[in-house]
Write a protein that binds this DNA or RNA. Structure first.
Lengths: 248, 248
DNA sequence: TAAATTTTGAACGTTTTTGATTGATTTTTA
DNA sequence: TAAAAATCAATCAAAAACGTTCAAAATTTA
């Protein structure tokens, strides 16, 4: 297998799985361990991935992740369903805002066939969008360490030059009285701005975020449609305040 | 088989598979290895494909893809020396602009102990800066696939709110008469803006870029100090036009 | 048809890539 | 915490691929 092909394959594996073991690459390529090591260090110096003991990670993966090689996320399937429901709302020609977050990240693979332009404030999303060759603009601003998102006053200013057909946002709290909330005020500002600039906004949350309240208020429930997977009681309850899409 | 037919077949294979081995072309055409080599170099100079060790890859109409396909581990030692020389110029409290590129990327590890703020237009740099926990702002703009950099009019606008003590830039061509040049006009615009906004600018290049001319002009040599590793003759020559730091 | 030109394939020395091996380092296990 | 296991970087020789050269074959031109 040619070097180029191996590199492609490695990047593909990473785009799908975020983390990949040495052993797996060796199997998939049929090359020796030495060769793969060389490949990885080349791709690392080119800025396409990050090596870790035992393999490599997408260079946008959270650094403090406890154990790289365990995919412990139980909400994976829910996220996937929510992401699919969100992607279904996106049509050719649209200008789409994608907020930082793992759920919005899950939307990206479903966008590959669509002729759209995406704006995002998230580094991981930018990397993934790039990989899927989707035309992308990145909002400038201060790079926040914990979420790898661009936030703050500068980010807001940078967004104001755009308008969106749809915006998809992650959120930490969704509550009938307190509306949409998130821990960091600077992030809240960005989310709020996105909602202002979009014709239609969607908040993507798994069930655990319903009835939760976080520190900074982003907007009232009326400002966006909620996409989630939950019981029909909860669905009915929130439907009193805004539109709810249940991706069950 | 006619030359034309062979060329056609090679391009067809590439259109289908993105990467194709020498061996496969030889089988399919029945021609000798030498002949296929000749074919490939012809097709390459005509801009229809890109040769790689062991075969060829599709070109996809890209004019040039410096960062992605560049042999990123060539000139490693030179790059390291240049990066170290550059890092030595950075002092606590400075606001630093780091342009996209593998040489500027090499600076980052040397910045860890310094109390500085960095602005960049490069996704790989942003990731690496994040990893090294260096306070970072990212310039917004259009995400360019081949270099993973943010470029264009929006990027320029986004930069205008900053001022830099120093700016470090990669470059594709450095020439006494033609000044600093780079392949992509939109990238040139960003580099030019960085120079405008910085009190002092440095262009980091390995020896191969000296005397080279690329498509888009960024600035004249007077606009920035050159940091490179080269012979004393070249150093003397370029010292006539601007300051030169030889990191030999 | 004969001469001139171009294309071809084999040969050869050089460069690049590769996989095995080594001892060092890191992670896991006990 | 110490020993065992896994993974690592560095090295080196073998293998693969490379560019160059040259004479034979094919094609074009005169």
């Amino acid at each position: 297998m040619l070097t180029k092909k191996r590199h492609q394959l490695i990047l593909e594996l990473l785009a799908r799985e975020e983390v990949v073991k040495m052993q797996k690459i060796v199997e998939q390529t049929g090359a020796s361990e030495s060769t793969i090591r060389r490949d990885l260090s080349q791709l690392e110096t080119a800025g396409h991935l990050r090596r870790v003991h035992g393999g490599a990670t997408a260079n946008h993966l959270q650094i403090e992740e406890p154990s790289y090689f365990e995919k412990s996320d139980q909400h994976v399937e829910e996220k996937e369903r929510i992401a699919r429901a969100a992607a279904d709302l996106i049509e050719d020609g649209m200008y789409v805002y994608l907020d930082a977050g793992t759920t919005t990240l899950a939307i990206v693979p479903y966008l590959e066939e669509k002729a759209i332009t995406v704006v995002t404030n998230s580094l991981p999303l930018a990397n993934t969008l790039l990989y899927h060759r989707i035309p992308t603009f990145v909002v400038g601003g201060q790079l926040k360490h914990s979420t790898q998102a661009l936030v703050g006053y500068n980010a807001r200013e940078g967004m104001l030059i755009y308008h969106f057909d749809v915006a998809f946002l992650g959120m930490n709290g969704v509550h009938p009285a307190q509306g949409f909330t998130t821990p960091d005020p600077e992030e809240a500002l960005v989310k709020k701005t996105a909602i202002e600039l979009a014709k239609q906004s969607y908040v993507l949350v798994d069930e655990t975020k319903l009835d939760a309240i976080s520190f900074s208020r982003v907007a009232s429930l009326q400002a966006a449609t909620i996409i989630t997977t939950t019981s029909s009681e909860q669905e009915a309850k929130y439907s009193q305040y805004t539109e709810v899409v249940n991706a069950k």
